[in-house]
Structure formats: structure tokens, C-alpha cells
Nucleic acid binder design. Structure first.
Length: 583
RNA sequence: CGGGGCGUAGCGUAGUGGCUAGCGCGCUUGCUUUGGGAGCAAGAGAUCGUGGGUUCGAGUCCCGCCGCCCCGACCA
């Protein structure tokens, strides 16, 4: 039993000045955590109870799925990370340190290398596979900007598991087992979440999915529809309009359009000088050709022109996902000098295409039969009614245009809107990258060495505590789901009547005997208002008030979340509480 | 790394170059109070982030440094 009179707890009346998001404010105010350094926190007794409840649920579901728990050190030597290139790739995010001899160490940000090497040391036959092992470990990442309290710390706890399979079918099975286990885990944690594909379908189906808990404080933007579609912005596939018959389109014609280097100026001039009879020109009638320079890992640099409707901007994240591993950067003056056929502000498709040395890919909205106003490759001139499939072609389509609220969902489930979420889980088919780099092979049934294929799967355990707080609170405080709450019932003894304290104490003991977890506010000399407010701030789901109604033999049972309250005769209180808490 | 804001008691904060740095919460002692963050009285608690400078005098002005928060960049 937790007794408030002796519990190491100090609730705060005011929000801490350095906290912005609700979970950070409330976890600090309710005395669950305290900051030690930027992005580094101490768990106090009540907070640690919640944390351990979350951890226990994660562990139970991993074990239930047949995964085996191991435990690595957080302190790791440099060499394995050197082998996979991550000692340098991870950059400043890696927490590095040296021992007394000057040997390099790191505090693990994630443990792919260590798991791979562990398996390599123990297993060498296909008969040993499949294997899934996991750990619940403190991770370290020297984030450029830790923020939002527990949500994004430099030290945090993650459940990370790794699967080892001989072939792709096996990997898919391991992946699916994790997906199911994660669904059960997050359901039990009381989290509202969506599963979004973290990569474009073009790059290999469901190779990676994120579990996002929608909330305003989330850092990840995703889009969803009311019909149930949810995806990362990078993974959204554009729904193309139907093609139009090419024959119906008027012939293309070049016009003088002086001083129209921007889409706005072009649309204004088109409406003034070349008005349409049926409607006004809009930016969506123009084809904007955005030039970028792609730099490949081998250092090769090639220009890429993206043609998209003039009312859309290029979304760099979407573009990056498409051209990876090449890195796109804006085209600079020196680049224009190297490609004189690109007339800044008046670039048109007629000068583009791989056969002319400049790759040209268009937005999926550019379908056969669509007519565009676009550059004529001469300063001050544009071409009108340039029809795709008749007057120009491209080297393919590209999903690089921004996704906007109201765009249709790819699966026809309605208009998209963007929302923010906290990444609480990530399942990922790694493939053979790490096994290759660290030479993890097993002999197959033919006695031939084969590189193992892997998956990695993470749950942010400490982050989940904050995510739950984000989703379960009101203006008075926290509202813990029972599964993670530090207690089942919070019993308040109010007033100064010794009989009240006796009755409350007896009820608390009786509850505990029934297996309920009890937080008992036995503080003497503390006014009822303080106890009520603390109980609301702490957020234990069921609150029992033993107070002035005790003279009539009554106690009050309150539901913290709904505010519903009922008067119950003291002898019936225990039975009622057992019913509620096991309900 | 860029932009902005801020460092005063455990927490939240006030403080025109001029007395012993003020207030609220919390804490200690006593009395009263006890169903919505009680009252009265008496206390404890601060090298005003740090180093230098200007000045008769610096929490206050100037410069450097350190740290924190927010936005952006970055982030299996």
C-alpha cells in the first residue's frame, strides 16, 4: 500500500516554466518525474510504477509471442559500429566516450550490430532459425534538440527486438508476428494509434510501418482519411485524374509572356492577354518545372527536373524518399551555367528528357491528354496547350508534390487531412544489410553458407508513458488507464475525525487483501481540497472519499475519467470497488 | 547549426544604477481550522548562471563564456 503521508512525492501547484506539452507539465506537476539534464529524467516512485507497468505489458506480449529476452550493455565498444559504418554515419547523435586507455566506446543508440554479432557467435545452421530475441534497454542519442520532456529524451528506454530468418518468407512471418504483438501491446496500454506505412509502396510493400499515437504534441506528421486510411506523407500515392482524348485538345501555341518568371505573374498575364472563354486560368493550369541537383553516394551529380502543377510545391521529404539514396539539393547559379538549355523561369519539357541529358519526371496528375501552360525554353515566352502524350513526354512519374488537406486518399476512403502523432513503435524489415556487413551466415540444407535476413522492431517504452499521458488527461490532471495506473484505487481520508481514518485504513487494507493496488491519502492536517486536487492531478482511475458522510455510514466512489460519483454504504464499498477494478 | 526568448530560494516570479533583494507556493514551530489548493503569528531558506569591464556604488549597464526553453534545420 502506498501511503501519501510517507510517499516520496511532492505535487506542484504550478506548471514548470520549462515545460510546454501536456505530458511534460503533468508528469512533473504530479511528481512522477524530475529533470536532471536536458533530455534526461529521473523517475520518482509513482512515475516509476507507471513506467514498470508499461514495461511489464510490453514484456508480457513479447514473451507471449515467443520472443526471448536478453540484455545487452548500454556501454559498447566502437568496433562493431565501425564495421557497419555507423560509428561515423550516426554523427553527433552518437554518445561517445573513452576509457582510461583512450579506447573508444559509445552508449548504444540501437543494437543491431550487437544482436547480429551475438547470433553469429552462437548459431551457424538454418535449423536454428527462425529466431527472435529482444531486450528492454536504456538507449542514448545525443539529440540536437531534446524536447517535450519524456517524449524525446537523450536517454530513454526502448524495447528492441531483432528477427533472424533464412529467407524473405521467414522475414515476413517474423514481421507479421511483431505487428500482431504490437497491436496487442498498444491496445493493452490504452493508446489510440494508427499504423502507417513508413515507406512508399514502390520501395517494397510493407517493409516498414510506424505505430503513431495521434496527438497535438506529436512530432511526426501523417495523413489520414475518415474512411480509415493512414500513411506517412512520404508514402501517399497520388490519385491521377482520368486521361483525356488527345484529339480534343487545341494545338499548342507559343506566346510572348514577358516578365513572368513566377507562376503568379504568369497566371495574371495569361488571364489579361489570353483569357479563356469558359473560365479563368489558375495556377493549376500551369506546369511548373523545378530543377534539382541529385548527388549520388558515389559522388556523381545529375540534374533532375520535376514537372508538377503550378499550384503545388515540391515536398522535399517526399522527393528525398523517391530519389534515395541520392540526395537532392536546390539548383544553383553555377548549375544553371553548366546547363544553358535550362532557362531559369521559362523551363519547358521540350528541352528535357534523359536523351537530352536532363532527367524529367512528372507529377502523377500529368496524365495523357492534359494540357498545360509551361515554359518555352526562351526568356519571356511560354507555350500554351502543351498536351502530355502528344506534345511532350517524360522519363516517368514521381511522387514529389506536396500532399494537401482535401486530396483524395489512394484507397478511395475519402479526403485526406493531416495530423500529428508520436512514434511509439516501428517495425522494419532490415534485410541483409547488417548480416552482410558483419558476416552473419548459416549453412542451409545443402551445406551452403547463406546470409541471414533480419528485421528490427522497436517500442519506445518510456516514450509510451508520455504518450499515454498526452492522450489521457484533462484540465485537472492525469487520467491513467487502469492497466498502467500506479494504483487501482486512491482512497482519501478527509477531515479530522479519527473514525474516518480508521474506516479508510480498514477499507484500504481490505482492498489490498482483494488484490487491488491502493494509494491511501492518510495525511493528517491536510485540508480536503488539497486531497481532492491531488487525487485529480495524480489520475488514479477510481477515487474513494471517506469523509463527512461516514457518520451516515456512506463513502463516495468517483470515476476519475468520467466524474461520475456514487454513494455507497461502507460495508458494500469493498465489493463495489472489486467489481469496478476488475470490471 | 540558424532565428527568437530566458537565467533571481525547492517551484512560480517582482525588482527606474542607490538602504538589509521583494512576493506567492512549498518547508519549520505554535494556536486555530477540516468536503474543493485554510487563518493568524513567528521562522529557516539566494555566492541574483559565470568571468571580466564601466562606476563612488551593478541583480540592474557593456563584453565574453556557460546553461535552459521555443521555432526551424537535423534525427534506424
Amino acid at each position: 500500500m502506498l501511503r501519501m503521508s510517507t510517499l516520496f512525492l511532492r505535487t506542484l501547484r504550478e506548471d514548470p516554466a520549462d515545460a510546454e506539452v501536456p505530458s511534460h507539465k503533468l508528469l512533473v506537476r504530479a511528481g512522477l518525474v524530475r529533470r536532471v539534464a536536458p533530455g534526461v529524467f529521473t523517475w520518482l516512485p509513482l512515475g516509476y510504477l507507471v513506467y514498470r507497468n508499461v514495461e511489464a505489458i510490453v514484456r508480457e506480449e513479447m514473451d507471449a509471442a515467443g520472443f526471448q529476452e536478453v540484455h545487452f550493455p548500454a556501454l559498447l565498444p566502437r568496433e562493431p559500429y565501425e564495421a557497419t559504418g555507423r560509428w561515423t554515419e550516426y554523427g553527433d547523435t552518437l554518445m561517445r566516450l573513452q576509457d582510461r586507455k583512450g579506447a573508444d566506446f559509445l552508449l548504444g543508440p540501437t543494437h543491431e550490430e550487437m544482436f547480429t554479432l551475438l547470433v553469429k557467435g552462437e548459431y551457424s545452421s538454418y535449423k536454428d532459425l527462425p529466431l527472435v530475441i529482444y531486450q528492454i534497454q536504456t538507449k542514448y542519442r545525443d539529440e540536437a534538440r531534446p524536447r517535450a520532456g519524456i517524449l524525446r529524451g537523450r536517454e530513454f528506454v526502448m524495447k528492441d527486438s531483432y528477427s533472424f530468418d533464412l529467407d524473405d518468407q521467414g522475414l515476413q512471418r517474423s514481421y507479421d508476428r511483431h505487428r500482431e504483438a504490437y497491436i496487442k501491446t498498444f491496445d493493452r496500454l490504452g493508446l489510440d494509434y494508427v499504423i502507417v506505412s513508413a515507406m512508399s509502396g514502390a520501395m517494397g510493400g510493407s517493409a516498414s510501418e510506424e505505430f503513431l499515437a495521434p496527438c497535438e504534441s506529436g512530432e511526426d506528421t501523417f495523413v489520414r482519411s475518415d474512411g480509415g486510411y493512414a500513411a506517412n506523407v512520404e508514402a501517399v500515392v497520388t490519385v491521377p485524374p482520368p486521361p483525356k482524348p488527345v484529339a480534343e485538345q487545341p494545338a499548342a501555341h507559343v506566346e510572348d509572356t514577358p516578365d513572368t518568371p513566377t507562376i503568379d505573374s504568369l497566371v495574371a498575364l495569361a488571364n489579361a492577354r489570353f483569357p479563356r472563354s469558359d473560365r479563368a486560368w489558375t495556377a493549376a493550369d500551369t506546369l511548373k518545372n523545378v530543377v534539382l541537383m541529385l548527388t549520388y553516394p558515389d559522388g556523381r551529380r545529375e540534374p533532375l527536373v520535376v514537372g508538377l502543377p503550378g499550384d503545388r510545391e515540391v515536398d522535399m521529404k517526399r522527393l528525398e524518399a523517391q530519389v534515395s539514396p541520392a540526395v537532392p539539393t536546390p539548383f544553383e547559379e553555377a548549375d544553371f551555367a553548366a546547363y544553358p538549355q535550362l532557362v531559369k523561369g521559362y523551363i519547358g519539357p521540350q528541352a528535357l528528357g534523359e536523351e537530352r541529358g536532363i532527367a524529367f519526371r512528372v507529377d502523377p496528375r500529368v496524365v495523357e491528354g492534359t494540357a498545360w501552360i509551361t515554359g518555352a525554353n526562351e526568356a519571356g515566352r511560354h507555350v500554351f496547350d502543351l498536351v502530355y502524350g502528344r506534345d511532350f513526354s517524360a522519363d516517368g512519374k514521381i511522387e514529389a508534390a506536396e500532399v494537401r488537406d482535401g486530396d483524395p486518399a489512394p484507397d478511395g476512403s475519402g479526403p485526406l487531412y493531416s495530423e500529428r502523432g508520436i512514434e511509439i513503435g516501428h517495425i522494419f524489415q532490415l534485410g541483409r544489410k547488417y548480416a552482410q556487413a558483419l558476416d552473419l551466415k548459416v549453412l542451409d540444407e545443402n551445406g551452403k553458407a547463406r546470409v541471414v535476413t533480419m528485421g528490427s522492431y522497436g517500442i519506445g517504452v518510456s516514450r509510451a508513458v508520455a504518450a499515454i499521458a498526452e492522450q489521457h488527461h484533462d484540465d485537472k490532471g492525469l487520467l491513467w488507464p487502469r492497466a498502467v495506473s500506479p494504483a487501482d484505487v486512491h482512497i482519501l481520508a478527509t477531515g479530522k475525525d479519527p473514525a474516518v481514518f480508521e474506516a479508510a485504513q480498514e477499507l484500504a487494507v481490505a482492498c489490498e487483501d482483494e488484490g487491488l493496488r491502493v494509494l491511501y491519502d492518510d495525511r493528517r492536517g491536510v485540508s480536503p481540497g488539497v486531497k481532492f486536487n491531488d487525487s485529480e492531478l495524480l489520475g488514479v482511475p477510481t477515487i474513494v472519499v471517506v469523509g463527512k458522510r461516514l457518520v451516515d455510514g456512506q463513502v463516495e466512489i468517483k470515476d476519475r475519467a468520467t466524474g461520475e460519483r456514487e454513494e455507497v454504504a461502507l460495508p458494500e464499498a469493498l465489493g463495489r470497488l472489486v467489481q469496478i477494478c476488475r470490471g
